[in-house]
Design a protein around this nucleic acid. Structure first.
Lengths: 136, 136
DNA sequence: TAGCGCTGGTCTCTTTTTGAGACCATAACC
DNA sequence: GGTTATGGTCTCAAAAAGAGACCAGCGCTA
């Protein structure tokens, strides 16, 4: 009932006003963040932010993803309203995925995080190396 | 082989294997993003951005996290250079976790994503409901 | 002095998620 | 008739996450 996560949220009202009433499953941050923090979500959103892609194109674009996870991640992104899925009646039928307005809206802040990642990749790699060296 | 955190080492081994194999090197974004896109990472970084916390405080603050995952997530965040871990020789010894400069730097864009999540939580929930209704 | 709790973890066991890869129906093309 | 391409699904193994017992050391206190 009185989740401490809500307390955390309260303490973080430095950034926003406190919202009343909340319970266990109602940690908005985690609810939303978890939907886009999957292993492949950000990568796929990043790709679709560039332009719409078809299933096979995405598969070739992100070769490390398994077909199964590509299907599932796109399904989840579609369910959360970030991605639009359209089937074209060609033969064989092709399926195009594109960002919705909500998806584009979400990509704006996500892109900043991605830019940070690109800029600071070396720093993170160095931190890892230093940490592993210290542990050995 | 690191005897410490015996049960938690597999992720580390994967990291090492992939770093050695060069797979992650091909995608800096995924390399970094994956480190902060874990289920609990953003929540813990968010908490530590407010002020340093001790292990037990974090556990009480985020009661849904298991002690095991709290240990591991903090370990991973420390390894990537976002979090500093300091042991104080009190009795019993207490451990304080705080953000590093790199962590604070990363939190800046992360915070924007969190703010987006708070603002658009309702839109995402509605999208989910609509999708589920359409599927039924 | 024998229990009890607090500290920050670790260990084992179970469940959920992810990964690897085979399989499928369709139809055009060779 | 076999090959290619489409966008998937299905199964099984491996990895990650969750639940909860356990641990050592010290202070308290009964």
């Amino acid at each position: 009932m009185d989740s401490k996560i809500f307390n955390l949220k309260s303490k973080l009202e430095v950034y926003k006003a406190m919202t009343g009433g909340g319970n266990f499953g109602d940690c908005p941050v985690r609810d939303v963040i978890q939907g886009i923090s999957g292993k492949w979500s950000s990568l796929l959103v990043m790709a679709l932010a560039e332009k719409p892609y078809r299933f096979g194109e995405l598969r070739r674009l992100v070769p490390d993803i398994s077909q199964r996870m590509l299907t599932q991640t796109l399904y989840d992104l579609q369910r959360d309203g970030y991605v639009h899925r359209e089937v074209f009646p060609t033969k064989p039928p092709s399926v195009e995925y594109s960002l919705t307005d909500l998806g584009r809206s979400m990509f704006a802040p996500l892109q900043l995080l991605i830019q940070w990642a690109e800029l600071n990749h070396d720093a993170v790699r160095e931190a890892r190396a230093a940490f592993d060296a210290a542990q050995a």
